[in-house]
């Protein structure tokens, strides 16, 4: 449902859409049980934790809205620690604005489990070890720029899934901006506080990427006047 009539507000500063492309690098480290997993998690760079909590999402979220992370998957399907696996899988990634705090939460969850179940440790069979990778992220500008909500909507419909991913996930967590870029811009540059809150409230981890694009488009369209009178400087 559109607003009936109104003015299209021109942003104080335009929104430049960026995109990000990833390359996966091996760290050479691998774990065969929970204790090794935790010890390695403590020492690897943040880009490793980011990789294992987000790459599955990129590879599979086109298809199904399930947000598993590699740690949860390995604990559940390789070590067969179902309860702990579920605990790790259900850690709410939306709550974290830094990789550091996310890393601490996962480590704390595993260490609590280890304290309650010290021995014997389950060990992965050869071939089932947890291999640690990191994501190398390349950030680049796209030609898409929006100066008002209508242009913003048009761009959201055209940009790549990688671009949506960058502004919704990476900007918040990996670049540690605290919130997603879309909410910040519509509030700060257009004064659309309600729309900003609606986008912030989205749980992007439970949508497919195309589903997320559709939901963003729907929310933005709601705030565009049905009959646009003119742009307001």
């Amino acid at each position: 449902m559109h607003k009936k009539t109104g003015r299209l507000v021109k942003a104080r500063e335009p929104f430049h859409f960026y995109t990000r492309l990833n390359l996966i690098e091996f760290t050479g480290k691998k774990a065969t049980n929970l204790r090794e997993l935790v010890e390695i998690m403590k020492e690897v760079p943040g880009s490793v934790i980011y990789h294992h909590t987000h790459h599955y999402l990129q590879q599979h979220l086109y298809l199904s809205p399930e947000p598993p992370n590699d740690f949860a998957y390995w604990v559940t399907y390789i070590l067969r620690e179902d309860e702990l696996g579920e605990e790790i899988a259900s850690i709410d990634l939306c709550e974290f604005s830094t990789i550091r705090s996310l890393r601490e939460k996962i480590i704390e969850t595993i260490e609590q489990h280890l304290a309650q179940n010290p021995e014997p440790l389950r060990t992965a069979l050869p071939g089932g070890e947890f291999h640690f990778f990191k994501t190398i992220t390349f950030i680049l500008p796209t030609p898409y720029v929006a100066e008002n909500l209508l242009e913003f909507l048009e761009s959201i419909k055209k940009i790549s899934i990688h671009s949506i991913y960058f502004h919704m996930f990476e900007a918040k967590l990996r670049l540690e901006k605290g919130e997603n870029d879309f909410s910040r811009w519509v509030e700060d540059m257009l004064g659309e506080k309600e729309l900003a809150e609606e986008i912030t409230r989205l749980d992007p981890y439970t949508f497919t990427m195309e589903g997320l694009r559709g939901e963003l488009s729907r929310l933005i369209a709601k705030h565009i006047p049905g009959e646009i009178i003119e742009c307001q400087e």
Partner: peptide
């Protein structure tokens, strides 16, 4: 193709986040 291009670019970079 995209990953090969990124691989070639990464040979000159050491950081995990690279602005192109």
């Amino acid at each position: 193709l995209r990953e090969y291009l990124l691989l070639f670019l990464s040979l000159e970079e050491k950081e995990d986040i690279i602005y192109l």
